[in-house]
Design a protein around this nucleic acid. Structure first.
Lengths: 205, 205
DNA sequence: AATTTGATAGTTTTGTTAAAAAAGTCAGGA
DNA sequence: TCCTGACTTTTTTAACAAAACTATCAAATT
């Protein structure tokens, strides 16, 4: 209907795409608004016409990525044949999500406290979707009498997700830098998580 | 035999005790050698007569604490009636260890990279003892045919310990500061870990 | 000879300031 | 309504001096 809005949305998308590339390669703090504007051959002021500030721009990109991830989870919700399949799907999808956007999240390594508080809404949203997916799967198995009844599926899933995040590399020689994992370690961590799934799912039977 | 050495050891112990109190209350970086010397009514130079530098002094205190903890684990090694008891003992003992020395470890929160590398030897030693305790318990249960055989008990224990460390607070509202837990959260975390034990041990049956 | 200290040297942390870089604003043009 | 150049404000960086602290050592004490 509103051509003007369509045009706006297209340009907004272009900005998001260019910003994503910059953030993915250089991270938040090493990306300047001038560079993004330069990539698009537009003035920096125009960026501020479409987005209130740098943080909100970053957040908008982040929300787009999150929505893709959320969609993957929602599409599968309730379509699992057993518990193990559900847990495997969650862990694999999450792994792919992190691997393909690894550098985009590099601000997590530093103490970048200057990011907007609204980022935690998105993080919560993602965690909520993950919890829902797995808690539903547990509930379904309980109703099918495949596993014994549990008092609080959500509590169990929260412990499981926390446990997943605890999996690190370097068993015998703990690393000094205990910040989030290096890219080359992601596969090793992924494999350990698969082992955790084996035991955990069996423990719910 | 050597009275001189006995006297040295006594004084060394006194220094360790005074240092422990300071480190426990104020942490590594907020404790000065002058203050420790003042507490003992001795000159700062004398501290350097007994310990080569501040890092080594801190490490000596740390080793003393670690030895107490290791002793608790070793005393119980191989004296468990079932797997659950072993895992519970490990988690409870660890919890008590952290709670009673909480402020001593506060340098972990900051990026205190200026601590001696030898600290990681002690950390490794502790982790090694934890792994041994639990892996032995698993092995014993396997031999008693209480649980099914496992290919690699150590690998399983490592995943378990990592999972334990991943347990955090604030399921719905993730905290900005994702550093190590606040003192008031330790009990909540402890309870979640007990839940993890329930499921994990059952998964090994 | 072993133990202890005051004085002092060397290093790290902290605070200050100026310059540079980047974020963010705005009056006005198309 | 969309867009820009010029401008203001805020943040980062670098340089440097002052303060605090670590570490050393010759000399004194036991």
């Amino acid at each position: 209907m509103n051509t003007s809005n369509d045009q706006q949305d297209i340009k907004r998308e272009k900005i998001l795409e260019a910003s994503y590339q910059r953030f993915l390669h250089y991270g938040y703090s090493k990306t300047t608004m001038n560079e993004i504007a330069g990539d698009l051959s537009m003035s920096k002021a125009l960026l501020y016409y479409y987005f209130p500030d740098k943080s909100e721009l970053y957040m908008a990109v982040m929300r787009k990525l999150a929505n893709d991830y959320l969609k993957q989870l929602e599409d599968k919700l309730g379509h699992f044949t057993d518990l193990r399949e559900a847990f495997l799907f969650q862990v694999n999808t999450h792994h792919d999500f992190i691997v393909s956007n690894y550098n985009f999240f590099d601000f997590f390594r530093l103490n970048e406290q200057n990011l907007p508080d609204t980022i935690w809404e998105t993080v919560s949203q993602i965690r909520g979707a993950e919890i829902k997916l797995l808690a539903d799967a547990i509930q379904a198995e309980v109703e099918k009498n495949n596993i014994q009844p549990v008092a609080n599926p959500i509590e169990i899933v929260e412990v499981f997700l926390d446990a997943l995040h605890g999996i690190k590399v370097g068993g015998s020689l703990p690393h000094k830098k205990l910040n989030f994992p290096h890219k080359e370690h992601l596969d090793e961590i992924h494999n350990k998580r698969l082992l955790l799934i084996d035991i955990f799912v069996k423990g719910l039977k």
